[in-house]
Amino acid sequence: MQNSHSGVNQLGGVFVNGRPLPDSTRQKIVELAHSGARPCDISRILQVSNGCVSKILGRYYETGSIRPRAIGGSKPRVATPEVVSKIAQYKRECPSIFAWEIRDRLLSEGVCTNDNIPSVSSINRVLRNLASEKQQMGADGMYDKLRMLNGQTGSWGTRPGWYPGTSVPGQPTQDGCQQQEGGGENTNSISSNGEDSDEAQMRLQLKRKLQRNRTSFTQEQIEALEKEFERTHYPDVFARERLAAKIDLPEARIQVWFSNRRAKWRREEKLRNQRRQASNTPSHIPISSSFSTSVYQPIPQPTTPVSSFTSGSMLGRTDTALTNTYSALPPMPSFTMANNLPMQPPVPSQTSSYSCMLPTSPSVNGRSYDTYTPPHMQTHMNSQPMGTSGTTSTGLISPGVSVPVQVPGSEPDMSQYWPRLQ
């Protein structure tokens, strides 16, 4: 039975679970980093996980050691009161100082060594604690504590007292930064006198190289990059290397530039699409467009005044059976039934097929058609009795279509119309 579990990581490298990497692998990681390889490249070359490479390099940059820390136990506290007071002093002298600059000053002034120097995250935590204590304490208590930490007896009751030896409130920041720059020169002199001055200088240079600022491109470089971006948004590694040799930039910087440029292009394309949609959409909808001609068919113009009344309900007709019959029939052209047409008796099958359309009241044959006459024609229609054979009435077949029909004066039988409509 094995005491430890061995495995293979996602890159194909072998590791022992819970145990640190061998010293030979750690040394190779540092050597590759000094030669300029990126952590992701080191991870692929040595088949070590990216997190492990970053952790080893980060500890090497901070402490200069590649040895693993002790497994188990607690780390001794490195942010001692003396170190905290120095950090507060540096922050007062130059409020814009960075944590890694404070760390360098602690090393250069001999406050800490490589073994007990606090990390950048520890210094940031100390600065946050100082800021929170400043908010919790009152103004007087804060000034007393700062005077105690600074070891001075001057008056701290006013704002300019934060910067000793100065009279203009805006000047101390520059003086403090100048003092810090002077301390940086002392850093070089002190570290050069040490035993491991060369190694420390190499480590600091490598650290500065990794902690780079934003790349500033010249106009020629920007023009070359934009020209390549117009050709393709995704250049391959050969195109990037050719462009890197042409404009004297690292291939990694060119790759990052193209990634950022593609993101910018997507944002601009989104804005262009929004403007295009806004320009195509009308600002207001016309009133006429809300009524579609496919839904509402136009009603033909009436030929006679009587045809303006298109349904039985508008003429005072309360018989719903006839109203439904007229509205359900398709529109037909106007025609006239003459008196000489043969009077065919209704076929029983045809009569039964339209039995649902006729009223059940037996008085329908005896009703006159003056009910369908509009009010303004009552006088004219009353002067001509319906009993004469020459009287013409208008029957409504569908809305908007008038059918003048000659009705025999002897017997106005409704059943004569249905064979004609089939």
Rank of each mutant, 00 (worst) to 15 (best):
Q2D: 10
N3G: 12
N3R: 14
N3A: 14
N3I: 10
N3S: 12
S4N: 12
S6W: 15
V8D: 03
V8C: 03
V8R: 12
V8L: 07
N9E: 04
Q10L: 07
G12H: 02
G13Y: 00
G13R: 08
V14L: 09
V14D: 05
V14S: 14
F15S: 01
V16S: 12
V16T: 12
V16P: 02
V16A: 09
N17W: 15
N17E: 00
N17F: 15
G18S: 01
G18W: 02
G18K: 02
R19C: 05
R19N: 03
P20E: 03
P20C: 01
P20L: 01
P20G: 02
L21K: 03
P22Y: 01
S24F: 10
T25D: 05
R26C: 01
R26K: 02
Q27A: 14
K28S: 08
K28V: 05
K28N: 08
I29W: 00
I29M: 13
I29Y: 01
I29S: 02
V30I: 09
E31R: 08
L32T: 02
L32W: 03
H34D: 07
H34M: 12
H34Y: 11
S35Y: 11
S35I: 12
G36C: 04
G36W: 01
R38E: 04
R38S: 05
C40V: 10
C40D: 00
C40W: 01
C40T: 09
I42H: 03
R44P: 02
I45S: 10
L46I: 08
Q47V: 03
Q47S: 08
Q47A: 10
Q47C: 15
V48G: 00
V48K: 00
S49G: 06
N50T: 08
G51F: 03
C52K: 02
C52M: 00
C52D: 01
C52V: 07
V53G: 03
S54W: 05
I56L: 08
I56Y: 05
I56S: 05
L57M: 04
G58L: 14
R59W: 05
R59A: 05
R59G: 03
R59Y: 06
Y61L: 08
E62T: 12
E62K: 14
E62L: 09
G64C: 00
I66M: 05
R67I: 06
P68C: 03
A70G: 12
I71T: 14
I71G: 13
I71M: 13
I71P: 15
G72D: 04
G72W: 00
G72V: 04
G73D: 01
G73Y: 02
S74I: 03
S74Q: 05
S74W: 01
K75E: 03
P76C: 09
R77C: 01
R77H: 05
R77D: 05
T80L: 07
T80E: 00
T80C: 04
V83M: 03
V84L: 04
S85A: 11
S85V: 08
S85K: 13
K86P: 03
A88S: 10
A88M: 07
Y90L: 13
Y90S: 08
R92M: 13
R92F: 14
E93G: 11
E93I: 12
C94P: 05
C94Y: 11
S96P: 08
S96V: 11
S96H: 12
I97D: 08
I97Y: 15
I97T: 09
F98I: 07
F98C: 06
F98Q: 04
F98M: 05
F98P: 10
A99R: 05
A99K: 03
W100D: 04
I102K: 00
I102W: 01
I102E: 04
R103Y: 00
R103M: 04
R103F: 01
R103L: 05
R103A: 07
D104M: 10
D104H: 09
D104L: 14
R105V: 07
L106M: 08
L107E: 10
L107Y: 14
L107H: 15
S108M: 12
S108G: 14
S108D: 12
S108L: 13
E109M: 14
E109P: 05
G110W: 10
G110T: 15
G110M: 07
V111E: 06
V111K: 07
V111T: 10
V111W: 08
T113W: 09
T113Y: 10
T113V: 13
N114H: 12
D115S: 14
D115Q: 15
N116A: 11
N116G: 08
P118I: 07
S119L: 00
S119K: 03
S119Y: 02
V120L: 07
V120T: 14
S121V: 03
S121F: 02
S121G: 04
S122P: 02
I123N: 05
N124D: 04
L127V: 14
L127K: 15
R128S: 05
R128K: 08
R128N: 00
L130R: 14
A131Y: 08
A131P: 06
A131L: 11
S132R: 14
S132Q: 10
S132I: 10
E133W: 08
E133R: 14
E133K: 14
Q135N: 14
Q136M: 11
Q136N: 14
M137R: 14
M137E: 11
G138E: 12
G138Y: 14
G138K: 14
A139C: 11
A139G: 13
D140T: 13
D140H: 10
G141R: 12
M142K: 12
Y143K: 11
Y143Q: 13
D144K: 11
K145M: 13
K145C: 11
K145Y: 14
L146N: 10
L146Y: 14
L146C: 10
R147E: 14
R147S: 13
M148R: 14
L149R: 14
N150R: 09
